[in-house]
Each structure stands twice: as C-alpha cells, then as structure tokens.
C-alpha cells in the first residue's frame, strides 16, 4: 500500500471534511460543486453509451470516475469537454451553462482535459509543448506574431512558469528534447504539466495511469495529489480500483452508461452493485479489497 502520509495533506483533509455529510447515492448533491451534469445522454447506433441523470463534482477534491470497460467513462469525458456532442443534456461549470461549447472555449474558462492515449506533440520540444498550454498569448494572433516586441515579455513570463512546472514534474532536464523521445510515463507527466499551463480550475485526466510503468505509478499518483494541494479540482477516469482507493476523495461508479454508485473509496468498494458491475464484465479483476462478498451469480454489466 502506498504511503499514507500524504493523505494528511490539507487539501485531502478539507475535501474529506466537505464531503462527510454527502449521502452515498448516485447523483448526490455536493456542498460546493464545480461541475453539475444533468440528463446527458449519447447513443452509438442502438447502444446507449452514456445516460447520466445527475452528477456533481466537488470543488477542490479528487474525484475518481470508475467503471468497467465500456461503461461510458471516456465518452462522458468527451461529451463534457466538447469533443463529442450529446443527444441531450445540460451541464454547468461554475454555475455557468457550458453545454454545446467548443472544447477550446471550455479549456479557456478553466476546464482542461488529458487523453487516454497521450497526445504529446512529438516533433516539438518539451518546452514548446508547455508554452502551447499558456493562454491569452498575444503572439498567437497572426498579425501580432510578426512583431516580436509585442509578445516577447509574455513569452518570458510563460517560459519561467513552464520551467517551474517542469521542475515539479521532474522534466526540467528534458526541456529541449523532442516530446516524441520521452518515455510513456514522462509523456503522461508532460501532458499533465501542459494541462496545468492552461491554469485550469478543474483538470480531467483520462486514465492517467494507463500504459505507465508500475514503478512510475506512485510518483504519478503523488503528482495528482499535488495538483489538488495547489487548489485545482481533479476528475479522473480509471478502471483499476486500487489506484483509485489510494488517491481519491470521492468515487463515482459508472456501468452501462449510468451512474450506479457514489461515495468515499472505502464505502464504494464494498458496494454490492459495484462489485456486480465489475464482475459482470471482468471476472476476477482488480477487486482485491477486504471481505467483499463475491456474489457468484453476478449478472449483466457487459456492454
């Protein structure tokens, strides 16, 4: 089990405290939600990939979105971040309706995502990857671009901010390397650091641990916790329960496109419905936690 010491960090304590009285039912209201989702649905052919009636994400906490493969987690991410259009539904970010907004607009107002398959911009240097994240650059306007004196100061400020972040993510020695030459784990880190360059209020990480060397996972988890400690809300998708247990303050479970359970990690892991959902699709998988009754007649769950 990972080091528990970091759990005592202030952000975690505050999040746990805030979520203490939240009822452990699907679609539960949170005291201070940053993201509120209502009746979002998306169909592929005859299959309802996502059908979420209500979901709230607590500000300042790490919320994990878990569920078996094909539960609709990534699709929900795509919908919320504007990369896919829902058949119906609305959602608000900071009490502002953002349904139907283009992805770049959502990123600009503070909702930034990463991707399951890392999207490091291979033939660009690590530093250029980082600088791309900075928003409001006047040099990115085509006419100002030709007049360096307009953007040089801003560029310098962004570079020093990028250096700080790279140092935090142990990538500062690589800053002139092509991003394509980094290892899988380093790319994940770069993507995370780059997302933080946007100065988001919420980062949405799509399977941040997927394809990462197990030795690196711990440090990756540490980085995610660190994001919360700096005051940024984290929502991440994962299907491995162990990882989730260690770092999340709150867990939302999806199966067949719907939210089937919510609660603190310990409680959710003991939830019968959750176990069924997992067993339905992946027999004998990551459910290793104590004494969960492994009902043999688990049903459904496959999509």
């Amino acid at each position: 089990m990972p080091a528990r010491t970091e759990d005592k960090a202030a952000g975690h304590a505050a999040a746990v405290e805030a979520l203490r009285d939240v009822p452990q039912v699907p679609g539960a209201s949170k005291p201070d939600p940053i993201l509120v989702v209502d009746h979002v649905s998306r169909q592929f052919g005859g299959l309802k990939a996502v059908d979420v009636a209500h979901m709230e994400i607590q500000r300042g906490a790490i919320t994990a979105l878990i569920g078996p493969n094909g539960a609709g987690k990534t699709t929900l991410f795509n919908l919320l971040t504007g990369f896919d259009k829902p058949d119906s539904g609305t959602w608000t970010f900071n009490d502002r309706s953002v349904a139907g907004q283009a992805p770049y607009r959502l990123a600009r107002i503070g909702m930034v995502r990463t991707f399951q398959l890392t999207k490091a911009l291979s033939r660009m240097s690590v530093m250029d990857n980082m600088l791309l994240g900075a928003n409001g650059q006047s040099g990115e306007r085509v006419l100002q671009a030709l007049l360096p004196f307009i953007w040089r100061g801003q560029e310098r400020a962004n570079t020093s901010r990028a250096l700080e972040l790279l140092e935090r993510f142990n990538l500062h020695e690589k800053l002139d390397d092509f991003a394509g030459s980094l290892s899988g784990g380093q790319r994940k880190l770069l993507e995370m650091a780059r997302a933080l360059m946007v100065s988001p209020e919420i980062v949405m990480l799509d399977e941040p641990m997927a394809g990462v060397n197990p030795a690196l996972t711990q440090s990756l988890l540490g980085h995610i916790k660190n994001i919360r400690e700096k005051g940024t809300t984290v929502l991440f998708v994962e299907h491995d329960m162990d990882m989730v247990h260690d770092i999340s303050d709150w867990v939302i479970v999806m199966a067949q496109g719907q939210i089937i359970a919510e609660g603190p990690p310990d409680a959710v892991m003991k939830d019968e419905q959750v176990i069924e959902a997992y067993l339905g699709s992946r027999h004998g998988s990551a459910l290793t936690d104590d004494g969960a009754s492994l009902t043999p007649d688990a049903q459904g769950g496959n999509s």
């Binding site: 990369f83 770049y104 291979s122 990115e140 671009a145």
Partner: peptide, 29 residues
C-alpha cells in the same frame, strides 16, 4: 520565418502534430 518562429507558429505546428491536444489547450484550431 517570422510567422513560424512566433507563438502563432507554435500553435500551427501543434495542430500538425495533434489537433485534439491543441484544442484541449484552449486554441481555436
């Protein structure tokens, strides 16, 4: 030359590499 060495050039190069990534960073691709 003036264009591609500027932040504008960085954005378009990013688009060449991966459009979705640049979109997710708040650029109107």
């Amino acid at each position: 030359w003036g264009l591609v060495r500027s932040p504008w050039g960085r954005v378009v190069k990013g688009i060449r590499e991966d459009e979705a990534a640049v979109l997710s960073l708040g650029k109107n691709v």
